[in-house]
Write a protein that binds this DNA or RNA. Structure first.
Length: 489
RNA sequence: AGCGGUAUCGUCUAGUGGUUAGGACGGGAGAUUCUCAUUCUCCAAACAGGGGUUCAAUUCCCCUUACCGCCGCCA
């Protein structure tokens, strides 16, 4: 059996989309599982929509997800170049072969003429297929058209190719995930393989590159199924070995439409900026269509690869649900090593002066605030009270502070705490006693602590109160408490 | 319109010609805690509809419906 070679072939007309990331993942998993090679190819035949920024984004995102490629534009390989715009001299040669074999022909139709054909078809409520108007142009006619300054495109002759390799007009292939797929090639129009500007179209460039790069399995979204039939015919017309194909269901937004900007983030880099961990993202996306045989959903890509079988991937579409991704992200944050977490949180703490805290204090702060984090970015709003002299009192805290009990508790707290040794251990002990005293008076521990919490943090919920006091320090804590006590006449 | 694809809790899915149809997220209830959260326990929640085949169908076949995709000198 020949070597397994798969590829991910993004078009750099945007940042790396999560859907592309999932396709890349499944290719990567398939390669890993079968000791194959994972190739990255940049499909930038449309110069208009391509930008270096997007290419960089694709590289960075794929790397961040851990989907490292064996061959690609940057790392090279035996079948390069791996960027289509650098392969433009290759495609015309193969188009020429097709022309000579009679599997392709020149088409001089103008966009206007084509537009008209299409309009006609819709007017007659017929599906549009190219009329093959230029199929049998004589040399004289072509010369005349050329003299007029017309530049021909090259079209693939579907019927010729189909007849040459198949008994009937039915074309069939065995899809890796969907099983047998068929189409009546009579319904396919002769599509353009070389544009009149001399560059290849997607369907042509893909085939030539997959052939030359010896791609053995093409795993991609099901939106490519109809392309696959056309591509198979080109492979055959060229006398090349046809790779195996596998088509994955699409990822849909919660409203069942295509996942787009209006649903929030779509690019991997956007998710990262929002505070998602790439490990969580890739794990989540793997679960869209694939499920672990042992039921254990939290799994590294390496572990998933061991368990992965392309034939077991679900062939239906799946909806991208943020709830589960969020849960998974919080789970991954919980599993993060302390030092790692401390570093990862820093980008989200730039509005605070981290120098106010010693490293030990920062560590403790992270320890007591990490629990409820869903996104790394959640840290920003979770810690403002650790910084600055004063604290902003929110509405709920204000109400709490306005009660008589709170005032009484606070006064007592300030008085007693003046003499406390300010270590977390001691504070823990002292506060326990403090609460107990009030409990005897019939005041719930909750209420007692609310007063202190509201005064010191400006909120009524948050991290462990003892730790907060210890980190903030005696002076600052008591100052805030005093400020919360109303001056009585 | 045509062609292709898909159909199990709200969502991602497991599963089988005979099962109490399983898990996870989310939801609900409770326990723990100084609060929020965490954690733990429990609960509700599905085989799209109609025909076949069969002793038996969620499972196999057909039709309907719904949804998705494709019909570019975009990729």
């Amino acid at each position: 059996m020949s070597e397994v070679r798969v590829r991910i072939a993004p078009s750099p007309s945007g940042n790396l989309h999560v859907g592309t990331a999932r396709t890349a993942l499944f290719n990567y998993l398939f390669a890993k599982k079968n000791n194959g090679k994972f190739v990255l190819r940049i499909e930038d035949t449309d110069a208009e929509r391509t930008s270096q920024e997007y290419i960089d984004n694709i590289f960075d995102s794929l790397k961040a997800l851990g989907l490292n490629w064996d061959e690609g534009p940057d790392v090279g390989g035996d079948y390069g170049p791996y960027t289509q715009s650098e392969r433009f001299d290759i495609y015309p040669k193969y188009a020429q072969i097709l022309l000579e074999k009679g599997f392709a022909y020149e088409c001089f139709c103008t966009p206007e003429e084509l537009e008209q054909e299409k309009a006609q078809a819709t007017a007659n409520k017929k599906p549009y297929v190219y009329t093959k108007k230029c199929e049998n142009l004589t040399e004289e006619e072509k010369a005349k058209l050329r003299a007029e300054g017309r530049k021909p495109a090259i079209r693939f002759n579907i019927a010729k190719a189909q007849k040459a390799f198949h008994e009937t007009s039915m074309l069939t292939f065995d899809d890796l995930v969907k099983g047998e797929l068929h189409v009546d090639t009579n319904l396919l129009g002769d599509f353009v393989i070389m544009k009149s500007n001399g560059t290849p179209t997607y369907n042509f460039a893909v085939v030539i590159d997959d052939m030359l790069m010896k791609i053995s399995h093409v795993i991609r979204g099901e939106d490519h199924i109809s392309n696959t039939f056309k591509q198979i015919l080109i492979f055959e017309a060229l006398g090349a070995e046809v790779p195996r194909f596998g088509h994955l269901g699409m990822i849909l937004a919660p409203d069942r439409s295509k996942l787009s900007k209006r649903h929030g983030a779509t690019a991997v880099s956007e998710f990262v900026e929002k505070g998602y961990l790439t490990d969580a993202l890739i794990n989540f996306v793997a679960l869209l269509g694939w499920s672990p045989s042992d039921g254990e959903e939290i799994k590294s890509v390496d572990k998933i690869a061991e368990d992965f079988r392309i034939g077991e991937v679900s062939s239906s579409n799946s909806i991208f649900e943020y709830d589960k991704l969020n849960w998974m992200n919080s789970h991954y944050i919980k599993m993060l090593d302390m030092e790692d977490l401390k570093e990862r949180l820093k980008p989200y703490l730039t509005k605070y002066n981290l120098n106010e805290l010693t490293d030990a204090e920062y560590t403790r702060m992270v320890e007591v605030t990490r629990e409820p984090l869903t996104l790394l970015s959640d840290i920003t709003d979770a810690v403002p009270y650790f910084f600055g002299e004063d604290v902003e009192i929110d509405e709920k805290a204000r109400e709490t502070l306005d009660t008589e009990v709170s005032q009484e508790v606070l006064k007592d707290f300030v008085e007693r705490a003046e003499n406390w040794e300010w270590t977390e251990e001691n504070l823990h002990e002292k506060l326990e006693k403090f609460r107990a005293d009030y409990k005897e008076k019939g005041i719930k521990p909750k209420v007692t602590m609310w007063a202190i919490r509201a005064a010191v943090t400006g909120r009524i919920c948050g991290a462990d109160m003892t730790a907060i006091l210890a980190i903030i320090g005696k002076e600052k804590s008591l100052n805030r408490a005093k400020k919360a006590i109303k001056c009585h006449a």
